[in-house]
Design a protein around this nucleic acid. Structure first.
Length: 479
RNA sequence: GGCGACGUCGCCAAGUGGCAAGGCAAGGGUCUGCAAAACCCUCACCGUGGGUUCAAUUCCCACCGUCGCCUCCA
């Protein structure tokens, strides 16, 4: 395994060596399902999806767990985000959660983000969270006050090891509003007592209440991946306090290393400012997909490294769309060529060699902390070579076309998820009809009936199908 | 105020101690009935000032600027 990753825990590039050879256990912080997912979520989850795809490409077995936060996420006012949303929409809290969770999966499906192997919900793991809290109490790392339980940060000297913060430094901070019942400002809630109007509540050894936000990740990761597992992912903005608290809880409770590698993605900004709930400046995935194809969003994500901050703009997405078209162009052409009969049957040594070389370069790029932009550059070089090859006089043989096609399917398709979805069912019929029109147009062109041939092309264009005439016939593409 | 990241062509962006990938845009050309696509050519000395070195965009220091976190957020 030549894969190197940047581990935020050690702040170094490190060879990635799974705990169990051949297996990757990976946990990524999922969304709080209280609103529609935005383009920042898209960046994060496309990035991790691509890591999973790449691991599988390398032949590793992956268990990918991503939680759904549907309880416990409080506003600074002390209000529960889910409850507030539900009250506003006049819905049951779980009705609200269900709505946005479905919407989230819809969006991810549309973006070609593979479903996690397990999508545990916080509300479905209350006993596990209570159990973890009990352990921490027993170990002396937590205390109970008035039916709430807090983690005792001062009992855990390693608190701050991920984010590089020393708790003493925070004391000068202007804003930490000391909650009366906490022993220390940095202590955080493991379990909160439910006030009378708080209807999301469960019974516990400390009375009716609900779990704090951070516990769910520690409890669920441990349950499905073990007390020690390989990768913990998430957005960099959650490094403190969320990720820091996760580590503290889990390691204090289990006495074992929590995640071994921390891979955190850079934030996405909109016009230079981070998109966030509180600022209300967010663009939803659904809105973006009304204007752009999902592959353009993925391409946009890959155009910078996953750890870099990225600024989103309409122009950037248009550029991504163009780039994507260029990248995928040769594949579409090759696919059309393969339909034709009478292709030469010879195999060319040089093409085989070039395909293998490119695959190697692609892996070198991805092995370097999933350097997708560098991987794209490799693929662009390949695309250019293929284009040159296809525009030569001598027709390319079937075996060569097939190896180009499968190269694309393997890397551009399976790993990066950038190929158009395969035609199936009624799409086959549509393709047949378009080819029929192309044939009729070819006959018109033979007769130099430019009026008819241009009319066919224009009217297809109006339907979102563009035609490109080449040496060996006409290629069609959909918008 | 504290912690962290970053500043590379008009825009996006990779990268290395030894003369800087790729994409978008732009200009010129080839091909084409036209168009589109494709192909060829052109297009940067890497924020500023010091230092280390035979040699720095790449290492160190300072400064300027941008962004993230420290409060909910992927």
């Amino acid at each position: 395994m030549a894969l190197i990753v940047y581990n935020s825990l050690t702040r170094k590039m490190e060879p990635f060596v799974p705990l169990v050879e051949g297996q990757v256990h990976m946990y990524v912080c999922g969304p709080t399902v209280q609103d529609y997912a935005h383009i920042g979520h898209a960046k994060t989850y496309i990035s991790f999806d691509t890591m999973v795809r790449y691991f599988r490409h390398l032949g590793l077995q992956v268990r990918y767990v991503q939680n759904i936060t549907d309880v416990g996420h409080l506003l600074d006012s002390g209000e529960d985000r889910i409850l507030r949303g539900a009250a506003r929409a006049k819905l049951e809290p779980m009705e609200l959660v269900e709505r946005y969770m479905r919407s989230y999966f819809e969006d991810m499906d549309a973006l070609g983000v593979g479903r996690p192997d397990i999508s545990p919900r916080a509300s479905g793991h209350i006993p596990e969270q209570i159990e973890l809290t009990k352990r921490l109490l027993a170990a002396g790392h937590a205390y109970e006050v008035n039916g709430s339980v807090y983690f005792d940060v001062r009992s855990w000297p390693q608190y701050g090891k991920l984010s590089g913060r020393r708790i003493e430094e925070q004391e000068e901070g202007t804003r930490v509003a000391v909650r009366e019942e906490k022993h220390y400002p940095e202590d955080f809630a493991l379990w909160k007592k439910a006030e009378p109007d708080h209807i999301l509540r469960w019974p516990s050894p400390w009375g009716w209440g609900y779990p704090g936000w951070h516990v769910e990740c520690s409890a669920m990761a441990a349950k499905y991946l073990g007390e020690t597992f390989d990768i913990h992912g998430g957005g960099i903005e959650n490094i403190f306090p969320h990720n820091e608290c996760e580590i503290a809880q889990a390691e204090a409770a289990f006495g074992a290393t929590f995640a071994r590698y921390w891979l955190l993605t850079g934030s996405l900004t909109l016009d230079g400012v981070k998109m966030s709930k509180s600022l209300g400046n967010f663009v939803t995935i659904k809105d973006v997909l009304k204007q752009h194809r999902p592959q353009a969003v993925r391409f946009f994500t890959f155009s910078s490294h996953y750890r870099s901050p990225v600024d989103y703009s309409e122009e950037a997405l248009v550029a991504a769309q163009r780039g994507w078209e260029r990248l995928v162009g040769p594949y579409l052409t090759v696919r059309e060529r393969l339909i034709q009969a009478g292709l030469p049957a010879e195999r060319s040594r040089t093409i085989e060699g070039f395909v293998d070389e490119t695959r190697g370069n692609f892996r070198t790029a991805m092995d370097d902390d999933f350097n997708a932009p560098a991987a794209l550059a490799v693929l662009f070089d390949f695309a250019k070579e293929v284009n040159t090859l296809l525009s030569r006089e001598a027709p390319v043989g079937r075996p060569d076309l097939e190896s180009i096609e499968s190269f694309y399917q393997e890397l551009v398709g399976d790993v990066l998820g950038l190929l158009p979805h395969a035609a199936a069912g009624s799409a086959d019929r549509e393709a047949g009809l378009i080819r029929l029109l192309i044939e009729l147009r070819a006959e018109a062109r033979q007769r130099k009936d430019w009026a008819l041939s241009d009319s066919i092309r224009d009217r297809l264009a109006a339907q979102g199908v563009s035609l490109e005439d080449g040496k060996d016939g006409t290629i069609w593409k959909t918008a």
